[in-house]
């Protein structure tokens, strides 16, 4: 993954965390840029397969995670489509898809869920399987997983 993208992702996350709503009015936040129809050439996002592929394997992964016995706990009553949408946005923004992720940062998202290592790795496995099922090339898969692995700290809370 390219450093600038990561940094900008971090910046986004930070920004999002700082500027959370204090007033009753609709908060001002950076405009969300949705995943594009055509992925920017050369980007990891493009190599992953662009919006159709990412949407597909995210969709698949979340469905698996939300129904798998070991991981479904933290998805109880959760709006899965929202999660999928946000995750696609995030991956898109992290992999140079040109998106602007407007969701909460990983720490905030997972605060209170007490995600275990096991659950995290399960998710990673499911994501890997799903990417493979959707014919995402090995290199791209590994790159994405690397990126997400960096978030483990924020996700897993013991």
């Amino acid at each position: 993954m390219s450093q600038p993208t990561f940094l900008s992702a971090l910046a986004c996350v930070f920004l999002a965390g700082v500027v959370h709503s204090q007033t009753a009015e609709p908060p001002a936040k950076p405009a969300r840029v949705p995943p594009p129809a055509v992925a920017p050439a050369g980007s990891l996002y493009a190599r992953l397969g662009g919006t159709p592929a990412v949407t597909a394997f995210v969709d698949d992964t979340i469905e698996k995670v939300a129904t798998s016995h070991d991981t479904k706990r933290s998805f109880d009553k959760v709006n899965l489509q929202h999660v999928k949408n946000m995750l696609v946005d995030q991956i898109c923004s992290l992999t140079g898809g040109g998106c602007v992720y407007t969701g909460d940062n990983m720490r905030e998202v997972h605060a209170g869920h007490k995600i275990t290592n096991a659950e995290f790795y399960q998710l990673v496995e499911m994501l890997r399987d799903s990417m493979r099922d959707h014919d995402v090339p090995l290199a791209a898969r590994n790159e994405l997983l690397e990126i997400l692995a960096a978030m483990k700290r924020d996700v897993v809370k013991l």
Partner: peptide, 30 residues
């Protein structure tokens, strides 16, 4: 709840969104 919520309303009487993070108190809405 120990987990966050992102509550909103589109009702004309009060249209708002507010994120409720665990451990953090959010400002009340008028």
């Amino acid at each position: 709840d120990n987990i966050r919520h992102s509550i909103y309303s589109f009702s004309p009487a009060k249209t708002f969104t507010t994120k409720l993070y665990s451990g953090r108190e959010a400002a009340p809405i008028l």
